[in-house]
């Protein structure tokens, strides 16, 4: 009996034991992880196997899509006609404003030419719709239905009518993943509305943004809006980032910590605009 127990206890460390295969596989996986972290092969692989995940996205989206379509068909015709009319008048108004803008833009261009200033912003944008889910494997992110085919590249800034949303981090053929500005370690170069203060704003994974150490002499008040500065050459100048909601004194009396509420929250939009790269 004792002999039997002893031999059973030792079995793990004999040639029969799977310990060698465990160690080999563990080393293999660590090597693969390191290699992937350096060379980003997972991103390339994901682009190639996107067709496997697409049906799952379709399945997740299907219920809301069906409900939306049923809702659309069940809507009263009169209501829709009224909406069409109001949209038409809005479009007419916008066209009139656009004409004025075209004139101003042309004037601006010629003035810039005269003053020899480089054109900083070209509004080459594409409009994308946010696709469910709003998370993948627990990590919050946005998926939009535009990809490489629409001229989107990794790093393209994403915004909506309220302000800056984030930056494209993965691009597939027809889908892109957007990292939100509130994500951990997300950094944006910002200026105040009156242009007197410049700082780096960080996301920290919470719903708010933060300026960790703003010199106390900077005159920033509650409710002040912050805009992109354009200095980072990624985000065009003047996109609204958020407004100051809290100023916290730090241990060092020369600096304050600023808490900013983002201008956009994930629940507040279903469409986003992606500024195509090469057009900061």
């Amino acid at each position: 009996m004792a002999k039997k127990t002893a031999s059973k206890q030792l079995r793990l460390f004999t040639q029969e034991s799977p310990i060698i295969i465990f160690v080999t596989l563990a080393m293999c996986s660590i090597a693969i992880m390191s290699y992937d972290y350096r060379h980003k092969i997972n991103v390339q692989l994901k682009q190639k196997v996107a067709f496997v995940i697409t049906p799952f996205h379709w399945m997740v989206n299907a219920p809301s899509q069906i409900i939306r379509e049923i809702d659309y068909y069940l809507s009263e015709q009169n209501k829709l006609q009224q909406q069409i009319l109001s949209l038409k008048s809005e479009a007419n108004l916008l066209q009139a404003i656009q004409q004025k803008l075209t004139l101003i833009e042309n004037e601006n261009r010629s003035l810039r030419k005269i003053l020899n200033i480089k054109n900083l912003i070209k509004n080459d944008m594409t409009i994308g719709e946010v696709v469910l889910p709003s998370q993948t494997n627990g990590a919050p992110q946005l998926l939009i239905n535009k990809g490489m085919d629409d001229g989107i590249d990794i790093g393209s800034p994403v915004m909506n009518n309220k302000g800056l949303v984030g930056q494209v981090i993965h691009v597939n053929k027809n889908l892109s993943t957007v990292q939100k500005i509130t994500s951990n370690n997300f950094a944006i170069s910002a200026i105040s509305e009156n242009g007197t203060m410049a700082a780096l704003i960080f996301g920290n994974g919470s719903p708010h943004l933060v300026i960790y150490r703003l010199p106390a002499y900077e005159k920033l008040r509650l409710g002040d809006h912050l805009l992109t500065s354009g200095l980072d050459q990624i985000y065009p100048k003047g996109i609204k980032i958020g407004k100051v909601i809290k100023i916290i004194p730090t241990n060092n009396s020369q600096f304050n910590e600023i808490i900013i509420e983002p201008a956009t929250s994930p629940q507040s939009f279903s469409q986003v605009m992606v500024i195509k790269s090469g057009n900061p």
Binding site: S29, I30, I32, N42, L45
Partner: peptide
Amino acid sequence: DILIGQLIGQYGFTFLLIYVLHF
């Protein structure tokens, strides 16, 4: 990992260690 993971090998490594621990 390939379908939804952050890094290739991360879930492989996690599953492996879970298996080893259980064993």
